[in-house]
Simulated assay, not measured.
Amino acid sequence: MNWKALIENRNRFFWLLQTAGWFGFALVQFLGSLLHDLRDIFVIVVFLNSYAGWMLTVPLRYVYRRAWNLAPIKMVTVIIIASYITAVIWQVIKNINYWEIYKHGWKPEFWLYYTQSSVWSFYIILSWSGLYFGIKYYQMLQKEKQNVLQANTLAHQAQLKMLRYQLNPHFLFNTLNAISTLILVKENTTANGMVTKLSEFLRYSLDKDPMKRVTLTSEIHALELYLEIEKVRFEERLQVKFDIGKDCENALVPSMILQPLAENAIKYAIAVKEEGGTITISVNRFGNDLLVELADDGPGAEIKNGNLYRESGVGLANTRERLTALYKENFSLVVSKNKPSGVKVNIRIPYELGS
């Protein structure tokens, strides 16, 4: 039985609690009869009284549905009146059952005696009403909580998708300009190869679900596509070195997490030096953590408290926000000076293997 589905179905849940509750009431009454050493025939009285209670409280559900949106004072008034009327009717039925079955048809001298002990029945029905509204309020709060969590999840997903698809338009403009230049100078083979790499890189960036992580091998392949496109522009000025641990190839990382860092390095380290420079990507495992480092040998930058201070650029901020969204506080991103020159970015995330 799917208990979660049963609880979420309010109609089924009501009938389950209604039946279980009155069965429990009958069981308590039966055990009480054993303590008071009543005759076996009292079991029939217990059954009929519990069945009458079960039947009489069903209409209360529909009365309370109509009273749900009333003002608090009016709603309380409806609950008390409805509970009292139901309790009196139930008590009359219980007295008739007891006198007709257990007392062999005994009848009181005055009709008002049929309602005696109604206060106890009123207490039982009022308790039933309290449980009904308590459970209904609990279900309402759970539904509101679920709606809030769902809204937060959707907002979280939207944020990740926004961050994930925040590609720098300058990269596309520069690449298209390079392709245009290659075509003008009749370098059609190189231009065609560049278009193919750009197409594959964009397909990868759009196909990968930003809510899921990819293996490091897949992420490195995407980074290589990006760097090969940039190499067409910078030629020998751009050198790339990889140092990937063998036990890290199937480690899971956020998709497109390295590209913004490499783009920053190219923009602020390679492009500003006439002789170009080298970008080094290192990935290793340390215990339960995956350590990722991307370093350049450019002129460096002003660094304070592990952050870069530049007039423009969203790469690092984008990366930090994505890591926060995916790992909460279980990550670190530190920017520091590379030796002898340049900047390096170190990322620590949990070490998890893909299937």
Score class of each variant (00 low, 15 high):
N288I: 03
N11T: 14
F30S: 10
E302F: 15
Y138T: 12
S355W: 08
V214Y: 06
V78A: 07
R61M: 13
V253Q: 08
M55V: 15
E187A: 11
R12S: 12
T86I: 03
A262L: 07
G354S: 12
L182A: 10
Y351D: 09
I7P: 05
V148E: 13
F171Y: 11
W3C: 10
G245D: 09
I257G: 01
G342D: 00
S121C: 03
A251Y: 01
I183R: 03
A26E: 02
Y309I: 13
S336L: 11
K246D: 09
A71T: 12
W15E: 02
G306P: 03
Q259C: 10
I125M: 03
I41W: 06
V78S: 08
N188G: 08
T196Y: 10
R233E: 10
M1F: 11
I257H: 00
E236N: 15
K246C: 00
L149C: 05
Q139F: 10
T181K: 13
K94M: 12
G277S: 09
L323C: 03
A26D: 02
K208Y: 10
F133G: 06
G300Y: 07
V78Y: 01
L291M: 13
P210S: 07
I270Q: 05
S336M: 11
V45A: 04
V335C: 12
N168H: 13
V345N: 02
K136S: 15
H36A: 11
P59R: 05
V232S: 11
S355Y: 07
Q91T: 07
R66M: 11
K143G: 15
L184K: 12
T190P: 00
V88K: 06
S180P: 01
L16N: 00
S118T: 12
R320T: 05
Y102N: 09
R12F: 05
L35A: 11
L126A: 14
G315N: 10
A271P: 05
I349Q: 02
V46R: 03
K186M: 01
F122W: 08
E235P: 06
K337F: 08
A20Q: 02
M75H: 13
K186P: 00
S121V: 00
I244T: 00
M162C: 06
I101D: 08
K197C: 02
S355H: 11
W120K: 11
H36Q: 12
Q116H: 12
K145S: 15
Y226R: 01
I125N: 01
Q139H: 12
G32C: 01
I44L: 15
R237V: 14
T77G: 14
Y84D: 07
S312E: 14
E224C: 00
S180H: 05
R66F: 09
I347N: 00
Y226T: 03
R65I: 08
L227T: 08
P260I: 04
E235V: 15
K136A: 10
T115V: 13
W22Q: 01
M194V: 07
A71V: 10
I85G: 06
Y62R: 07
S180T: 09
N9F: 01
I257Q: 04
L182G: 04
Q166G: 04
A5Y: 05
S127A: 14
V240G: 00
P299T: 09
Y113K: 10
R233G: 08
S83V: 04
V28L: 09
